[in-house]
């Protein structure tokens, strides 16, 4: 077994305007495309990133504009690691936030399914958060092996 190495890295920082949701997921998925993922894998990554970025905009920086940081790392074993970080209000009860259909903003028609989507579309979701300090979501997804007839 060869050692898993970091082969590429992308860092993004942008203000939490909702118009940036589309650009953020497009840039992350374009960067991941160098690993030759399947269409479905790329679509899952795009969706999971969109959820995390939207959370930072809608909840982390509610009623304010702050900076969202994204770091994407591609590894030689075809693992993609994506960190989405904000310095917003943080989450007081992470376990509750992870529950399907839980939302602090029903009037905004938030479905409460953001973390559920992230969990279903990636291999692992780790949330670190402290009230008043911010939130960091780390997503990991291992892409399927390259085959000739893809």
């Amino acid at each position: 077994m060869s050692k898993t190495e970091l082969i590429n890295e992308l860092k993004l920082a942008f203000p939490s305007y909702s118009v940036n949701e589309g650009g953020a997921r497009a840039m992350v998925s374009a960067f991941c495309a160098s690993l030759n993922p399947t269409v479905d894998e790329l679509s899952d990554i795009r969706c999971a990133v969109s959820e995390a970025v939207t959370n930072s905009i809608v909840h982390g920086y509610r009623n304010t504009i702050g900076t969202i940081f994204i770091m994407v790392r591609l590894y030689s074993d075809r693992t993609v690691k994506i960190e989405i970080k904000d310095k917003g209000c943080g989450i007081s009860d992470i376990e509750q936030a992870l529950q399907p259909l839980f939302t602090t903003d029903p009037a905004g028609e938030r479905s409460g399914m953001g973390f559920t989507v992230m969990e279903n579309f990636t291999d692992s979701v780790v949330v670190r958060s402290a009230p008043g300090k911010g939130t960091k979501v780390t997503l990991k997804k291992k892409l399927s092996k390259l085959t000739q007839n893809r």
């Binding site: 795009r46 969706c47 938030r110 409460g112 399914m113």
Partner: peptide, 13 residues
Amino acid sequence: NFMDSSGLGLILG
């Protein structure tokens, strides 16, 4: 060509 849980919120809403 793209929908996340916000789209789900739109539909359920």
